[in-house]
Design a binder for these strands. Structure first.
Lengths: 214, 214
DNA sequence: GAATTAATTGAACGTTCGTTTTATTAAAGA
DNA sequence: TCTTTAATAAAACGAACGTTCAATTAATTC
């Protein structure tokens, strides 16, 4: 056998990415073999090497693109000139919406850092740090304005990120809470956490919800 | 060669546990081979099978004992009759202290659930749920008393656990913050998160700090 | 319709995996 | 001291791993 009828490089590559994110999120990078991945895609293992030179390069591609898309997503909704509490609201809501939408890819990006080589790990961490700096700046601005009560913006940023990223561990679609409801609750908890004195409703731009629900 | 001079079963088993927690935390369960583990211990791979029948049983033992010790640790410091805000303080401080002291084992327990068989996974999740229920009850009690402002105790418990467990991702000893300082900061953030109105200082039993610093 | 390119198969490579078996030596007990 | 038991080494097992290569066929181009 050789080339199959209806075969298409673009479709195959997309199928590989999707299957890889799914399998790696579920079983872990090391536990998933190239043969298992190929079977999920519906091809032989050798066919994967037409699209990705090594297994690790495939992992790296998934993680890098996920992080780039996360940053792009934030840049597209960030209310730059707005007060800190509104920017924080937008950050939390975008983060939760993005991560719930891409649970598999997020799981991979969060869990498989140790499977990357030094240089590739550095590249991913650079992206992650850039993203986290956005939150730190919001917290610092809010603390400076007196909107927030924060002694340690770096530690608080860590705590918030871990809290709002943790949603993917337990959230399952079609359960008691919708994405918007979950985002609402985390938004409220975040505002309390940073000691914001204003009402949450005022800060809710609903930009994310409108776009995603659209 | 065969039995080596000075060899001792108890010491070897302890060395295997320590090396396994260290290596698995760093590289992941699937990525660590029995030969690699044996080399770290200073024995041949076959010797490991005198102490653990399979690789997975070794992983399971590490995770189960870690969870049991976590629960025992909480039971030893839990101020049962105390008001909710003091119990919450004790919970957060014990959790952070315990997890920082056992970063490797915690990492394993949090990251390697997917490498367990069905039955073993169930056993670990049962322990984890039992622990989380303690926190949920504290939140419910506090909400009932009016000490806390919480609409969704289950979701809030998840958020708090993820936040305070996340400390092991970034915390390194010998850096700018001590364990007690980190616990202080997380305690304060948690109290804000649950909408506690009282001052944090009153709720701080310092039991954990005294025991560990002793 | 012939030539070229794109996409894939099937078989094979050497390596490493978890695990088992057997033999061997140190320590403990009589 | 002799016997027994505890602890380990050394070698080997079949299976699975990531990856490569040559052959083969579908789609595209001329």
């Amino acid at each position: 056998m050789a080339r199959t009828t209806g075969s298409d490089g673009e479709k195959t590559e997309a199928a590989i990415r999707a299957a890889a994110a799914d399998l790696i999120a579920r079983y872990g990078y090391e536990a998933v073999s190239m043969r298992q991945l190929a079977m999920q895609v519906g091809v032989q293992a050798a066919a994967l090497y037409r699209y990705f030179p090594t297994k690790e390069e495939l992992l790296f591609t998934l993680m890098r693109e996920h992080m780039e898309e996360l940053i792009a997503s934030w840049e597209s909704v960030a209310p730059c000139g707005a007060p800190a509490r509104r920017r924080l609201a937008a950050f939390v809501r975008n983060h939760i919406g993005f991560h719930i939408e891409r649970r598999h890819a997020t799981h991979v990006s969060n869990m498989e850092l140790r499977s990357l080589s030094r240089e590739r790990l550095t590249a991913i961490l650079r992206l992650r740090t850039a993203y986290e700096k956005e939150l730190r700046q919001i917290l610092r601005d809010g603390a400076g304005d007196g909107e927030f009560q924060i002694e340690d913006p770096v530690l608080t940023a860590m705590a918030i990120i871990q809290m709002i990223t943790g949603v993917i561990v337990w959230f399952r679609p079609d359960e008691r809470l919708s994405v918007v409801e979950v985002a609402d609750k985390y938004h409220l908890m975040t505002m309390r956490l940073v000691g914001a004195r204003t009402h949450v409703e005022e800060d809710n731009v609903h930009a994310f919800d409108e776009v995603r629900a659209g």
